[in-house]
């Protein structure tokens, strides 16, 4: 049902956990639908003054795809500037995982939205 890459991220999730002194947090989803994702960000300014994602962690309640997309998203976003991270498109995460079954594509969207939410919360802080 899932690609090897999805199963790898599911079994060995990267950046799973919390950042106690996070600069921003984004949470999306609803337990009624079965998926809740929470993204923690620690940011740094680089030489040109842009915000860089120095550290990123996730907590997720959900299916295999929800956990795998959360994990993949953190890998994709880590080290990027906020500007670059915002360029990650909704289905890029699924693509990076070698694809997801069609009914699970929403997990990719959810992971995207969780990061966008965290960045929004930072920018409106």
């Amino acid at each position: 049902m899932y690609t090897e890459k999805v199963m790898d991220h599911f079994s060995h999730p990267r950046n799973q956990g919390i950042i106690p002194d996070a600069d921003a947090i984004g949470q999306v989803g609803n337990p009624k639908c079965g998926d809740v994702m929470k993204i923690y960000l620690k940011l740094n300014k680089n030489k040109t003054g842009d915000d860089v994602i120095k550290d990123i962690k996730f907590e997720t309640l959900g299916c295999g795809a929800a956990i795998a997309t959360s994990s993949m998203l953190t890998e994709m976003a880590k080290g990027k500037t906020i500007k670059e991270a915002l360029k990650i498109k909704k289905l890029d995460i699924a693509d990076a995982l070698g694809g997801l079954p069609e009914p699970k594509l929403h997990c990719s969207i959810l992971a995207h939205d969780a990061l966008a939410e965290a960045i929004k919360n930072y920018q409106t802080k």
């Binding site: 599911f10 299916c63 295999g64």
Partner: peptide
């Protein structure tokens, strides 16, 4: 409560 069934099944399968 507090977990998703599919994730349990996948981990058991492993």
């Amino acid at each position: 409560p507090g977990v998703e069934g599919e994730s349990i099944v996948l981990m058991l399968s492993q």
